[in-house]
Amino acid sequence: MEPVASGSIVTLKDVAAASGVSISTASRALDERTASRSAAAAHVRKVAEELGYRRNSFASGLRRGETRTLGVLVPRLSDTVMALMFEELERAASSRGYFAMVATSGDDPNDERRAAETLLDRNVDGLILATARLDDELPRRLRERKVAHALVLRTDGVSPSALGDDEVGGYLAVRHLVDLGHSDIAVVTGPTFTSTGIARLAGARRALGEARLTAREEWIITGGYGIENGFSAGEALLGRDNRPTAVFAANDNIAMGIMAAAHRHELKIGEDLALVGYNDTPLAARLPTPLTSVHVPLDQIARTAIDLIVEPGAEPQVRKSMPSLIPRESSGAPLVHGNGK
């Protein structure tokens, strides 16, 4: 293999010559979209690496009318689930030869629209939205404009969507508490404008119904997904004589807020109050009382979202990944007398 002159830019022609193949063969071997596993392609890639060749994906994408870039819109990156989701989307996009860039929008629909337009102004090949509301106009507008897009973690039921099966997840959480002997079970769920909030509550109600338990409406609390929302709900539920013995919190942030409220009321999680969270964030297993939580396969959801954009038109358009329950100390041991009081 002849060395390339020091300081010069290594071209595709240089790689082809050093590999002993044609320029078109070298180009195909280095195209991340095809990722050929043949021995010849592997040889070309090895030579390219030794020469220090860098493929200009942006320029080649422009020639095809693509930028190989995807825009990801999340409410906020301070939310652990959203940050983890973006990391998984970034990895999944990279494996398909795409670069992912993120923008945040908060919960305001106008800010969401502006953030989406900012990403589109950068000629992204598609948008992935983790912001969808059931009353959100943005997915409809994207469909009308024929903009490639996918919703992630949430769905409006129409646009291509990749998410966990939230109804199954809510069912698993409450079924676990029922199986431990609890009958006085509260549910603290997310906003009613999100598919997650509605579906997790529906699953919880199904588990209660199967056990012939009636959910007390004062023990069903809807609100935001922040720790402060969980603390407020915990205060409302635990600051009374007639309190639940178990709580399903529809995400781990809510669960941590309820833990703080329980501590304030001198209740021990796992003994005086059983608690189940949702999403199984990394902190859940490392809390002073490790949190039982519903695990959602974010990596699988991310790969599905990328597929929905890269391979549009495949059925079904709304694809759900199966969650699983991870039992830990916060849900406690089975009750002996049913209601734990």
Rank of each mutant, 00 (worst) to 15 (best):
G190P: 00
D135F: 03
L12E: 07
G223F: 03
A236P: 00
L120K: 08
F231I: 06
R216Q: 14
G226H: 06
M259G: 04
A204E: 06
S27H: 04
R33V: 05
L208N: 10
A202L: 02
L77G: 04
G61E: 02
A59P: 05
M82G: 00
I301T: 06
Y98F: 15
E112T: 07
A83C: 09
R240W: 01
T281R: 07
L119K: 04
A39Y: 01
R37P: 02
E329D: 15
V147C: 13
A16G: 03
V81D: 03
M256T: 14
G209L: 09
A260F: 05
V310C: 09
P288S: 00
T69M: 14
I306R: 00
D108M: 04
A202F: 00
N251H: 08
R140N: 05
H337Q: 14
A199G: 00
E311N: 15
G223C: 07
L134D: 02
V4A: 04
L70F: 10
K46L: 12
M322W: 08
T131M: 14
A162T: 01
N253S: 08
Q300L: 09
R76I: 00
A274N: 02
T192A: 14
V294W: 06
S321G: 01
G277C: 08
T196C: 06
A250N: 07
A35S: 12
V15A: 07
A132V: 15
N56T: 10
R91P: 00
D136P: 10
S22P: 10
G338S: 11
R319I: 14
R328L: 08
G181E: 11
A314Q: 13
F99H: 12
R55L: 13
A150D: 02
K13V: 14
T194H: 14
L30C: 06
G126Y: 01
Y171R: 15
L89M: 01
L208G: 09
N242E: 15
